[in-house]
């Protein structure tokens, strides 16, 4: 079930002088089962891109196709939302119901799932986000910790069983433990076959998790490809205000200090550690 952007341009109603469209002629295809990392500095159009994946915003010109269905087709909008779940930034601000069960069940109920189905979806989603159903189902979402609220809000979208899940900065504001938990949820969904589209500021997370990286700059598609290719374009990234993952940065520093590492440029801490160990003759290949 591919997701296709065809020459997508989006302009906000009232443009600030000197600012171009939020998306500017973006064309790309996201294949089934991919883990896509969307990167770009503040104001690059990442969030607008995310909002286009499920028709929350529709292009000013061009088309977004979900399995061939244009998101601009008003009659198909419900179908698009069923297929593509979208978790906005700080989704916990959208929690509203009196209990976690009701909050998580709102989406699936709206999609017309039967009561039994809703119960099943809710239980499954709550457990998938790492919460104990019996413990939290009847609790007010507002009595939970920040990290738990975030996970309940995600469960509300996951309960609709989307084929594609778009998450905008899902780790923002969370502590390291919370970040690990949210990344774990996305990894598990991806393992089960869901296409994951993650907007992120963290090059380290994108390098580790994604198999397809989309780079936006001033609303334009600045680069696209697998992490190794995209992060090898260091100068291009720097020009648009982005960084390479920390591991690549350290490898670069080491080379400047006279320690060239064997093999391709490492993108993760683990790859970096193995390359250094090997260079120091410590057989970094052995586990």
């Amino acid at each position: 079930m591919p997701l296709a952007f065809e020459h997508v341009t989006y302009s906000y109603g009232s443009q600030v002088d000197g600012m171009g469209p939020a998306l500017d002629d973006v064309s790309l295809t996201i294949a089934d089962g991919e883990f896509v990392g969307v990167i770009g500095h503040t104001g690059s159009g990442k969030s607008t891109f995310a909002e286009h994946t499920n028709g929350l915003k529709v292009p000013t010109s061009g088309r977004v196709l979900v399995d061939g269905i244009p998101t601009s087709d008003k009659k198909a909008r419900r179908e698009v939302r069923r297929r593509v779940g979208y978790v906005m930034q700080y989704p916990e601000y959208q929690l509203f119901a009196e209990t976690v069960r009701e909050d998580v069940g709102f989406g699936p109920r709206n999609l017309g799932q039967s009561d039994d189905e809703v119960d099943r979806s809710v239980r499954e989603a709550i457990e998938l986000v790492g919460l104990d159903y019996d413990e939290v189902a009847d609790v007010s979402p507002f009595d939970l910790s920040g990290g738990q609220k975030r996970r309940v809000a995600m469960a509300g979208i996951i309960a609709m069983r989307p084929h594609i899940l778009t998450v905008d900065e899902p780790m923002a504001g969370l502590d390291p433990q919370g970040r690990h938990e949210v990344l774990g949820i996305l990894r598990e969904l991806h393992r089960r076959g869901t296409t994951v589209i993650m907007v992120s500021h963290s090059m380290d997370d994108v390098a580790r998790e994604a198999d397809h990286v989309v780079v936006l700059d001033h609303g334009r598609l600045a680069d696209e490809g697998d992490p190794r290719t995209v992060f090898s374009h260091e100068e291009r990234l720097h020009r648009i205000g982005l960084d390479v993952p920390r591991a690549a940065h350290v490898a670069h520093d080491l080379a400047e200090r006279g320690m060239d590492l064997p093999g391709p440029c490492p993108l993760t801490l683990e790859d970096l550690a193995r390359a250094i160990a090997k260079r120091l003759g410590r057989g970094g290949d052995a586990r």
Binding site: H41, T42, G173, H201, G241, L242, D243
Partner: peptide, 11 residues
Amino acid sequence: DEPGAMLDPRG
């Protein structure tokens, strides 16, 4: 109080 939570690396 966590002013950088939503900023990109450059910011």
